[in-house]
Amino acid sequence: MNLTVTVNGTAHTVDVEDRTLLVHLLRDHLDLTATNIGCDTTSCGACTVLLDGESVKSCTVLAASVDGQSVTTLEGLAEGERWHRVQEGFRSKHGLQCGFCTPGMVMAAVSLLDENPSPTADQVRQGLEGNLCRCTGYHNIVAAVLDAAAAKPVTS
């Protein structure tokens, strides 16, 4: 089937199998490989992207379902050279190691802060319940999100 999806501000029209998952649309058809696949069961959150601004697990959304909608992946988060404050927070607090969970974790955190701009540490932990990381023990991830929350949102 043919569908048109705006990804990181660019409209793409693609022809895919009906059963194509959003994550495969991004990775295999659009070559946007930051978004990763870490599980089969909607558990790990490595594939988290923003759909019309809200976090979703792109392994559990059909590409067909988002025809006409707008998707943001890690690749589209920075504005040119200017990083999103969540990216800055992860960098300054060493909120990543192997980097595999990072794109999903960052996108989940962006959505979290959008809905709750001043979370407590506990709210950050609860808010990231759908994203697994095996490297960091989450300590620095929580610090990174709190750091991002404390930073002023970048206004363009």
Partner: peptide
């Protein structure tokens, strides 16, 4: 010293085997 590895992981993502083009 902040890691030199991180900018890539935080902008375009790493290049894991399945990402190879």
């Amino acid at each position: 010293v902040m890691r030199v590895e991180d900018p890539k992981f935080l902008t375009t993502g790493g290049v894991y085997v399945d990402d190879l083009r």
